[in-house]
């Protein structure tokens, strides 16, 4: 038995692969649930109901899809040029730090001004932490996978340091938290539990997706991602492209951190990253690095996460959400192989 490459990939293969991944994940998850004494039908029904069964569920799912989608977009933008931004988690944290830093000065600012400034701070924070790996890659050819990965751990410790030290809330009962954000920094509501962060994220994903698919800039990225030598042949400056793309990628992930802080929390805490950056990589991979796919996969993952949180009332650990996400990816990766290859038995 061997794999033979198809001349043209199966039409709609990626959607099918994703669906196959979901089915595989649900089946394996069911085995796990049964073996630990749970009724999978009941658990899955509850997950579905909590995440997509009501406007309230949808609002929670979409809110959760915001950091997932933006982190996924950040990874996808870099990925369309063949670069791996594994640092979305750290950039997201840096974004939250940037936003929190701005908020320290804006206690008496008007809400709109403060939120705008905080989101800008988030974008700058994410871009800044991505700048190092970007420069190292563009100028010295240093592998960005490792540098961005390492900076995740650095960012996690920077925020830990801040909330345990200089930014520690004196009135926080000695908990490692920063002071509460000014009340006017909370993002205005959208519907039910969702805030306008959903709209901001949708607009950013849409705009970046449209621009990279249709613009000359996006086309140049695609050439560079397909072959660096072809890009040089056409006269595209690879160094400039690497730099702008990785910094843009960091800025987008930073924005996710800013929206997370202004929309879903009241203060900067250690766990602000929430693993969204890592999940975003899976989201981008499942979306084949296409921004259009990122939104859909992010909503699906948001539903899995919200559903996973809801089934704790049934005595099922919330960690089932992470398990299902990873299994979806493995299932889809396996299935995706079959969209590009045929199995030949001989």
């Amino acid at each position: 038995m061997r794999l033979v490459r198809r001349e043209t990939p199966l039409k709609g293969g990626q959607v099918r692969a994703f669906a196959a991944g979901v089915v595989i994940a649900l089946v394996l998850g069911a085995i796990l649930l049964v073996s630990t004494g749970h009724n999978p039908a009941e658990v899955y029904a509850k997950m579905l109901d909590a995440s997509l069964g009501s406007p309230r569920g949808w609002s929670a799912t979409l809110t959760r899809a915001v950091p997932l989608g933006l982190a996924g977009l950040a990874v996808a933008v870099a990925g369309s040029m063949g670069l791996w931004n594994i640092g979305a988690e750290g950039q997201l944290i840096a974004g939250a730090i940037g936003a929190a830093w701005v908020a320290r000065f804006g206690g008496d600012w008007n809400g709109f001004v403060l939120i705008t400034a905080m989101l800008l701070g988030a974008v700058v924070g994410g871009a800044l932490i991505a700048l190092g790996p970007a420069l190292a890659r563009a100028r010295l050819g240093v592998n960005e996978i490792i540098t961005t990965l390492m900076l995740n751990e650095v960012a996690i410790r920077v925020v830990r340091y801040l909330v345990n030290g200089p930014w520690k809330d004196p009135e926080g009962n000695n908990f490692p938290v920063a002071p509460e954000l000014p009340p006017q920094s909370a993002l205005p509501g959208f519907f039910e539990r969702a805030n306008i962060g959903v709209l901001i994220a949708a607009a950013v994903i849409g705009a970046v997706g449209f621009y990279s698919a249709r613009s000359a800039w996006g086309y140049e990225l695609k050439i560079a991602g397909s072959s660096a030598k072809a890009a040089e042949y056409v006269g595209i400056s690879l160094k400039a492209k690497i730099l702008t793309v990785l910094v843009l990628s960091g800025a987008i992930a930073g924005l996710a951190g800013g929206i997370e802080l202004t929309g879903s929390s009241t203060r900067l805490v250690e766990g602000v990253g929430g693993g969204f950056g890592f999940a975003g990589i899976i989201v981008a991979a499942l979306a084949l690095m296409r921004p259009s796919g990122v939104a859909a996969v992010a909503v699906a993952f948001g539903a899995v996460q919200i559903g996973g949180g809801a089934i704790q009332t049934l005595g099922v650990p919330a960690s089932i959400a992470g398990i299902l996400q990873a299994l979806i990816l493995f299932g889809a990766l396996g299935a995706a192989v079959l969209t590009n290859y045929r199995v030949v038995v001989k």
Binding site: Y219, S226, A230
Partner: peptide, 13 residues
């Protein structure tokens, strides 16, 4: 392929 043409892109591109 790889310099004059970009392998993963389509004919139009």
């Amino acid at each position: 392929i790889g310099v004059g043409l970009a392998p993963k892109m389509n004919v139009t591109e």
